[in-house]
Write a protein that binds this DNA or RNA. Structure first.
Lengths: 266, 266
DNA sequence: CGGACGCATTGACATCTCTCAAACTCTGCG
DNA sequence: CGCAGAGTTTGAGAGATGTCAATGCGTCCG
């Protein structure tokens, strides 16, 4: 019954008459025709913090593109707890094209704008637009890679290592998201978008251990805890060493990030 | 230089003049035309245990479909250790369509037959065959789901829970693979396709702890260790409880599996 | 047949993490 | 301003895991 675009039932509001699809970097290079068709079948939705965008086990009538804000994907365990399996930010896609029900729930972590593509016309357009098809395919492949990176982080035996890996992911993947990363004077501030409890579930631990791991990293000098949910990265290399050097040279350097972030502010 | 189909350099041997593609359940329902075209651009390769099928960081000239045997995907860490991020069995696909280099290595765990589709004609065919395109898309979506299921298993705090989850995955996903699952008289035998050391890497632990966890499960009565790499599932429900009931009702029952496996033997 | 080798197991101990409980911080509200 | 509530932090003890070393088991090969 709730398998429709949640514009009425879900409490989401239309933000504009149509999405500014070309702002999404992944879609920007599509042919004009395709973009026009996308705009026609797209409905912009707006979600407040904590709202459910899509329910696990349902088959929403839309494929979502995140336009702004942060969403989280989570699975519901038998005991009712929620387990986060990924975060979605600007440019990310969710929904199962051509396929059955979702097996994750999607919930907004911060106020979010989502472009909802009606399923049937979107799938039809996929068949006619090889370029769009390719964008969707690559998006899913990227998501798969990120899930595998997570697997490596989660397989670290110590909480401190997993937490450091999590911070590295935040730095490398969410650099373009203003809500999460900001440049300070020679340092980088990271906003932790989820609570200690959720972070504990995500990293396979408990809130207390997460807290201790944060302070252990701080004692090591690689980070500083400005507020419980605001971390200052002081030594990216040290953090990377703690994380276990997961991907040799594949992580962003402090200098690179600072340059990028300051460049954005100008 | 090694980015070609490894028929000469890699030591892989052609097994037949062409692949029996229609045997792959995922491809069986494709139109005859598409299957014929696939057969034309496909080269069957055969790998012995331990051979490298594709190297991380390279962009192989082919997209692989596993025809038989077991392969493992792994990432190389900075210290040279290999970290397994997934197993591939009959019907699975690997390779990055339309995209850049692989970020996993693929290595055969048991003697394996792989159908190697030449990249360029395969991508060309994808554009002309919506059915094939859809098969590829769904395959990747399934792989993504499996990776997320792994994340939940890996986030369990105790080794015994993660190991139980691993065994559940083996039961639910590899039921059709003769190398892994066999029905006994009222019980199910699972062949563990990787060593304790690799299993420890996969589950974020150490070989010694894995060994202890196996024996703890055996003491609990849910499994029996017939040989180090041959486990008898005695109580699927108990195993599921230990695993933490990750997906309520989403796991196979003992009865279902036994029925399925015996049906296959007849 | 025996010995070397790889792998799995077992034991002992240090370390880390979980658990439970209490104190603390921040925010919103009367 | 004080209070209540949620979330975070800290502390102490029990439990689980990592670590190191030694032993057991099977296979391969001389």
């Amino acid at each position: 019954m709730e398998e429709n675009i949640p514009d009425n039932q879900g409490g989401a509001r239309h933000s504009r008459s149509n999405c500014e699809l070309s702002q999404l970097s992944q879609l920007a290079e599509l042919p004009v025709d395709t973009l026009k068709e996308l705009a026609r079948i797209c409905r912009p939705l707006r979600f407040q913090t904590g709202q459910i965008v899509a329910h696990e086990g349902e088959r929403p009538d839309f494929i979502g593109f995140v336009h702004s804000g942060i969403l989280r994907m989570q699975k519901t365990l038998e005991d009712g707890r929620q387990h986060i399996v990924g975060l979605l930010v600007e440019g990310d896609m969710f929904g199962r094209v051509f396929d059955g029900p979702l097996n994750v729930s999607v919930e907004s972590v911060a106020d979010a704008e989502v472009c909802a593509m009606q399923r049937a016309p979107f799938e039809s357009l996929l068949l006619r637009s090889p370029e769009l098809d390719r964008v969707v395919l690559l998006n899913i492949l990227d998501e798969l890679d990120r899930a595998r990176d997570w697997m490596i982080i989660l397989a670290k035996p110590k909480v401190k290592e997993r937490l450091a890996g999590f911070l590295m992911v935040l730095c490398s993947r969410f650099a373009g998201v203003d809500h999460i990363l900001r440049a300070g004077s020679g340092t980088i501030d990271v906003k932790i978008p989820i609570s200690r409890t959720d972070l504990a579930h995500l990293l396979g631990s408990r809130p207390e251990s997460i807290s201790r791991a944060f302070h252990a990293l701080a004692d090591g000098g690689s980070i500083a805890i400005k507020k419980p949910d605001l971390i200052e990265i002081q030594d990216m290399d040290a953090l990377c060493v703690v994380a276990g050097d997961e991907d040799a040279g594949n992580h962003p350097t402090m200098e690179h990030l600072l340059e990028f972030l300051h460049g954005r502010d100008d």
